[in-house]
Amino acid sequence: MPQMGQDLEELVVVKGKKFFISKEVDLFFTGLYNVYKFIGHFFKEFFSLPFEFKEIINQCYQVGNKSFLLISLTGFITGIVFTKQSRPSLAEFGASSWLPSLIAIAIIRALAPLVTALIAAGKVGSIMGAELGSMKVTEQIDAMEVSGTKPFKFLVVTRITAITFMLPILVIYTGLIGMLGSYLNIHHNELTSFPAFLNSALKSISFLDISASIFKATIYGFTIGVAGCYQGYNATNGTKGVGRAANTAVVLSMFLIFVEEMVIVQFVNSIR
């Protein structure tokens, strides 16, 4: 961990138990500072040689493999349920034909990135927190350090890179699966053909929608990676600490995803 963060923590906690504001507030800002240093360390190691390509590929596979089934299922169900729920409201105004457009906008702009990110936070973020936390408390990270290697590069940089790269791919996949679910429901009820559905859906989607969605997914992936790895890499207090690291990683990344969603939506709407 960055030395400066530790020094600051010692200043706050150790020196006569004196705090600038209160223990909680001081520790909150110390924590923020440590995260800032953690991210700085990530970028420093990310651009330094040698690259851990093999491990990055392995982690990409792990991220994809761990979330693939769950994302397929939830994406498909989301598409069907959202279509079913939206139909009565549109039918009231005689606008059932707008259903593909509505679904496409909802899925591409909001549902696919959010659903995928929340599932990845629960599935992958918790595993990152638990894996690294377990390695930390069993001295495996210390063992890597004393063997003259860089555990941060091997364990943290590879994981954050993998999920940042993989989440946009998973979001695109969720979008497609969600649209498939929606099409099946619309076809079943309105007997709409696939070309007609596709034509209607694509007409309402702009390049900005797709690029904003991919941008959001990249930010969410980075957030999940940083939250999971930070909590795991700094786990203490044995198995209890490992559990807390996994739990905090999920809660924190889910909370941050919603905050980021709000900010990004505001930003994208302002340039639309």
């Binding site: 390695m135 069993t138 001295e139 495996q140 063992a143």
Partner: peptide, 16 residues
């Protein structure tokens, strides 16, 4: 550190 060998109490083998 390349000149120092450290044998941990828990062995600290990388379990993955």
């Amino acid at each position: 550190r390349l000149k120092i060998g450290f044998s941990f109490q828990s062995s600290a083998l990388y379990d993955s």
